[in-house]
Design a protein around this nucleic acid. Sequence first.
DNA 1: AAGAAAAATTAATCCAGGTTAATTTTTTAA
DNA 2: TTAAAAAATTAACCTGGATTAATTTTTCTT
Lengths: 281, 281
Amino acid sequence: MLDLPFIAVSYCYRGIGHMYFRSNGSKGLCCTCPNRYFQFCKSLLNSSSTEFDPHAVKNLAVTAKQYLYHQGDLNNELFVLREGWVMLTRLSEDGKRQVFRSVLPGELLGFQQHLNGPAIYSAIALLDSVLCKVPKSVEHYSTQPELALSLAATEACDKMLTEMYLGNITHRNARERIAFMVLELFHRLMLRGLNNEYSIQFPLKQEDIGDTLGLTTVHVNRTLHAFRDEGVLQIQRHELTILDYDSLYSLAGSTFKILVPEGLENPIEAGRVGSQVFRSS
Amino acid sequence: MLDLPFIAVSYCYRGIGHMYFRSNGSKGLCCTCPNRYFQFCKSLLNSSSTEFDPHAVKNLAVTAKQYLYHQGDLNNELFVLREGWVMLTRLSEDGKRQVFRSVLPGELLGFQQHLNGPAIYSAIALLDSVLCKVPKSVEHYSTQPELALSLAATEACDKMLTEMYLGNITHRNARERIAFMVLELFHRLMLRGLNNEYSIQFPLKQEDIGDTLGLTTVHVNRTLHAFRDEGVLQIQRHELTILDYDSLYSLAGSTFKILVPEGLENPIEAGRVGSQVFRSS
DNA sequence: AAGAAAAATTAATCCAGGTTAATTTTTTAA
DNA sequence: TTAAAAAATTAACCTGGATTAATTTTTCTT
């Protein structure tokens, strides 16, 4: 049966230890890349392809605040983010900006229904980032069906994340929305070992949070302030620290639970993070 | 380059004429199926596979209000909806229900990241429906890379639709949300010829609209009432009629525009529907 | 280190849509 | 055909978050 548990999985496996604020140089081979066990990279490395040589992967370095591409651009490349943080946004005619999601290390970037049609959103690097080019030719995938399936699973994964945000925004209030978003990002980084206990590097502005969740900056600010006063959560100098995981967890609600593996409700509390090895095959 | 303009396209090509309230019998071969030029079916029929014989496709008939599967169910099949209307919903712990989207004829149903994991939502038929089983074995796709790519493109298509709903709900008011939803469904049905001028069969309850858009039934009712009074739109006896397309179009906003082909802003007004043949290859 | 720009913060006011609770209409089942 | 259940409708009232507009703090430039 078609099941790809070890391919294209964002949420269901642990990271490979602590690499907080990792910066291992912009050039590098796949064999030393911390993302090699994740998502698309994994299937790329597992494939029998000789057409695409992971040892000759082309890197692209971008600095923070630089756009990778803008909505409407044609013929963009397909990338995996090696390190950094990329945010996907779209500006509507009336000047409102929708933030769709953050792309974190190991995740695919740039795939859309019409790969060579105009980009449906803009991609901006929020941190200095390194991207690896992914082959885009049909021929390549034609001889690598596992890769094509991995693409499908990756898209399904993104779709699920978007759906969970949709449910979150549609049915929950400001505190719940922010709790969900913070926990979702925290877990996604933690799976890659990019946390330091309860802290993560957090380049999103309050405006970004608002544009993701459909809240004004003013209200995001009020809510974050309340969280800080209550000792739930604090953000300072681009570092987010979860002070009361359980409160956030209960605010995030059941929608969040389908994104995290069983038994990882509070992985740090339970002393689990870093104590288990990533299941590599 | 990897571009699949004629595969897995929901939004960018026209239907093949009028088949309003089509009901051509539950058993049928692909060669006479009106969906054979769409999305996944198209690539299935174009593939060189001998493992999956489109002439021996297995149909499943379900009656309206019957669940195909529930959230949490294991090992569900993969289907294409041949005729009818299926809605995807998820109930959260606190009893709120999120409606994710409607699955319309020709669309794929049941694909998710973990195909054999628990279903992340329930699927309920809103009309009497007929579904065709789609092969689910890895082996099948391994010898049919175009099919696997078609899956990826189909998922990207669903993802885009979900993202547009997300943007719509996050940044727009009740009238705008409803206008967007109505137009989106109208266009999606029209692409398949399932409209009758400005009317479509519409099995959604006001509660369904509310649970899709994050509005209460009371407010959906108020808004629909206002639309009727203003001569914009009316729903009666499960039939939705667009009375003032242009008003709806301007309410739906720019988000909607990326879902419809250029020049189709008001296809009926322009006399275009039915006058062009679907581009079959 | 100083000045400028960006981001965060705070307060006051307001309203779109929620909540609650009845009533009426439509659909379904017997 | 009729009773019961489901869905739609309407009204009255209320609140979470929007809006607007300053002010303060932080970050970037030079």
